[in-house]
Computed example of a mutant assay.
Amino acid sequence: MNQGNEQKDELQALYLKIESLRNNGVKMKEIADWLDIAPSVLSSLYTTVLPNYIELSKTHPEEEALDSALMTVNNISKKRLLSQAQEMLLRLKDMKEVPIEPPINDSSILRLMDEIRQSAGKVEAIKGIYTSYSLSSSSEHLKMEPFLIAPREDHVRIGRISAYGETQWGFGIMPDPQNFHCMLNENQAPQLTLVTFYLQIPFFKSPRQLRGLYIGQDYNRNPVARRILLVKESESTGMEDFLGRASGLIAPGELTPEQQAYYDYTCQPGDCIKMCTVPSLHMDESDLIKEKKMLAL
């Protein structure tokens, strides 16, 4: 076996072992403590570097795949990963798993899990790489972020590269032909900051645009709902193609004519609904009046 295959097998085994521990109830912090590494490093390794490397290595040389996977994070070096992978794997083999909990018997949760699996076969018309456009939380700029809709064997993988260069992952559900729901984590595991998207699916064989709404949090963790537009860039769902896309904020004075139309659609009054934290709550209608006054300031 050559060195490239050994490297791939070792890193894949490391990913599968972490996944097995996670699936059997072991927390990310516990795994990080066991390996004596920072939780943020383990999170980057498990949620970004290793899955991207495994996916890219199917179609690219091992070294190129690993280099591309590592480009998406800034807290893991190639030299350190390769020198410590074998030791980490050996240490994890000695880590005990938490006893498996009884099977889920809640019908609503089971239905949701089943819908996640079935959706993988429903998104052929909308799969691909998009650029999403929406209003920035911190300014009047147009936010431009690559967005991936990629069917997998048992789910629809959703990816987004934030305007600040952070790669985020989630899943999608398509309960009917006209609606597609996405959910992703804006944070790194074990932290969970959910963002949800509701997209309307037009009756086209391969629509160029998807319009919808999404709900996230502002910098003070207040809910914000915004209009969003997805413009298709490619039918590809390749990881390298997606990860190589640019993201960022575009000032109103720097918009192209096409981007101006996107800005006019997503960044006008009424395209964003905000909430704020009201001090000294009374739990009556006065709180509602106070919040609206605060938002108007």
Score class of each variant (00 low, 15 high):
residue 64 E to R: 10
residue 249 L to V: 07
residue 126 I to Q: 07
residue 182 C to V: 06
residue 91 R to F: 11
residue 282 H to C: 11
residue 286 S to K: 08
residue 262 Y to T: 00
residue 160 R to C: 02
residue 211 R to I: 06
residue 214 Y to R: 07
residue 140 E to R: 09
residue 30 E to D: 14
residue 99 P to R: 02
residue 261 A to F: 00
residue 255 L to Y: 07
residue 266 T to D: 04
residue 73 V to Y: 06
residue 288 L to K: 02
residue 232 K to C: 12
residue 146 P to T: 05
residue 8 K to R: 07
residue 249 L to R: 04
residue 14 L to S: 02
residue 225 A to W: 07
residue 31 I to E: 12
residue 88 M to Q: 05
residue 164 Y to L: 10
residue 119 S to D: 03
residue 86 Q to W: 04
residue 216 G to W: 14
residue 103 P to Q: 09
residue 122 K to L: 14
residue 235 E to M: 15
residue 291 E to L: 08
residue 95 M to R: 04
residue 16 L to S: 04
residue 155 H to D: 04
residue 21 L to V: 13
residue 199 L to C: 08
residue 257 P to V: 03
residue 219 Y to L: 14
residue 256 T to I: 00
residue 251 A to W: 04
residue 97 E to R: 11
residue 66 L to S: 03
residue 20 S to A: 12
residue 268 Q to D: 05
residue 139 S to C: 09
residue 169 W to G: 00
residue 208 R to M: 11
residue 108 S to L: 03
residue 124 E to T: 13
residue 113 M to K: 05
residue 126 I to C: 06
residue 94 D to E: 09
residue 295 L to I: 00
residue 140 E to M: 06
residue 115 E to C: 00
residue 283 M to P: 00
residue 182 C to E: 03
residue 65 A to F: 11
residue 5 N to Y: 06
residue 213 L to Q: 01
residue 138 S to T: 13
residue 180 F to P: 00
residue 191 Q to L: 13
residue 14 L to I: 02
residue 115 E to L: 02
residue 291 E to P: 03
residue 92 L to P: 01
residue 276 C to H: 09
residue 41 V to I: 12
residue 180 F to S: 01
residue 225 A to H: 06
residue 135 L to E: 12
residue 269 P to K: 08
residue 165 G to W: 08
residue 187 N to M: 12
residue 188 Q to G: 14
residue 136 S to M: 13
residue 25 G to A: 15
residue 72 T to G: 01
residue 5 N to A: 09
residue 135 L to A: 14
residue 253 G to I: 04
residue 284 D to L: 13
residue 197 F to I: 06
residue 46 Y to A: 15
residue 76 I to E: 02
residue 53 Y to Q: 03
residue 293 K to M: 04
residue 297 L to W: 09
residue 108 S to A: 03
residue 215 I to E: 15
residue 213 L to R: 01
residue 146 P to L: 02
residue 141 H to P: 04
residue 26 V to M: 14
residue 158 I to L: 04
residue 31 I to A: 13
residue 26 V to T: 14
residue 73 V to W: 07
residue 294 M to G: 00
residue 198 Y to H: 13
residue 172 G to D: 03
residue 48 T to C: 09
residue 4 G to R: 05
residue 112 L to C: 13
residue 110 L to N: 09
residue 275 M to S: 09
residue 183 M to H: 05
residue 228 I to W: 07
residue 41 V to H: 05
residue 98 V to H: 03
residue 169 W to L: 05
residue 10 E to N: 06
residue 271 D to Y: 00
residue 97 E to G: 12
residue 107 S to E: 02
residue 274 K to S: 00
residue 132 S to N: 08
residue 20 S to I: 00
residue 256 T to V: 10
residue 205 K to A: 14
residue 117 R to W: 00
residue 63 E to T: 11
residue 233 E to Y: 08
residue 183 M to V: 08
residue 58 K to G: 11
residue 230 L to I: 06
residue 237 T to E: 15
residue 290 K to S: 05
residue 53 Y to I: 00
residue 54 I to S: 13
residue 278 V to D: 07
